[in-house]
Computed example of a mutant assay.
Amino acid sequence: MTTILALLLIVAMIATLFMLIRGVVAFLKTTEADLNAQGSGPSQSALRQNKAMMGRIFFQGVAIIIAALLLLLSR
């Protein structure tokens, strides 16, 4: 059981890293036109950044829950 949880923890950590890199790339692709757009709602770049951040937070939460389960089972 702990082996499966350890593998799931590694997968969650890799997914977190992937979403972090995806968010940084979306941030770097932000153009001056995206920053100067007014009144038209959030830009596509901002939406991509937000989606990447929410994904990263989700996978971090999953990793924390799995780590807590591993700690509980190791006692």
Rank of each mutant, 00 (worst) to 15 (best):
M1C: 03
T2S: 04
T2M: 07
T2A: 00
T3L: 14
I4D: 10
I4E: 12
I4W: 03
L5T: 08
L5F: 15
A6D: 06
A6K: 14
L7V: 08
L8M: 14
L8S: 12
L9E: 11
L9C: 07
L9I: 09
V11R: 00
A12Q: 03
A12E: 01
A12Y: 00
M13V: 02
M13I: 07
M13N: 01
I14K: 06
I14P: 00
A15N: 10
A15R: 07
T16Y: 10
F18K: 14
F18L: 13
F18V: 15
F18T: 15
M19V: 03
M19A: 11
M19Q: 09
M19L: 13
M19T: 10
L20N: 11
I21E: 02
G23Q: 10
G23N: 06
G23H: 13
V24Q: 14
V24S: 12
V24D: 04
V24T: 12
V25P: 00
V25A: 12
V25C: 05
V25M: 06
V25T: 12
V25H: 07
A26L: 00
F27K: 08
K29G: 01
K29I: 01
T30F: 03
T30P: 04
T30R: 12
T31R: 07
E32N: 14
E32Y: 01
E32R: 11
A33C: 03
D34I: 14
L35I: 06
N36V: 09
N36S: 04
N36W: 06
N36P: 00
A37P: 06
A37E: 13
A37K: 11
Q38D: 02
Q38G: 00
Q38L: 11
Q38W: 07
S40H: 08
S40K: 15
S40I: 03
S40Q: 13
S40M: 06
G41T: 04
G41Q: 07
P42T: 02
S43T: 15
Q44V: 12
Q44R: 13
S45G: 15
S45H: 06
A46K: 10
A46G: 12
L47T: 10
L47N: 13
R48S: 11
R48M: 07
R48Q: 15
Q49L: 12
Q49M: 15
Q49A: 10
N50G: 00
K51D: 05
K51F: 09
A52P: 04
M53Y: 05
M53H: 06
M54F: 13
G55E: 00
I57N: 03
I57E: 00
I57S: 04
I57A: 07
F58S: 04
F59L: 08
F59Q: 02
F59N: 06
F59Y: 09
F59T: 15
Q60Y: 03
G61K: 06
V62K: 02
V62R: 04
V62L: 14
A63Q: 10
A63P: 11
I64E: 01
I64L: 11
I65Y: 04
I66Q: 10
A67I: 02
A67R: 02
A67M: 05
A67E: 00
A68T: 14
L70W: 02
L70M: 10
L70I: 14
L71A: 10
L71M: 09
L72P: 00
L73F: 06
L73N: 06
L73T: 07
S74E: 07
S74F: 06
R75P: 14
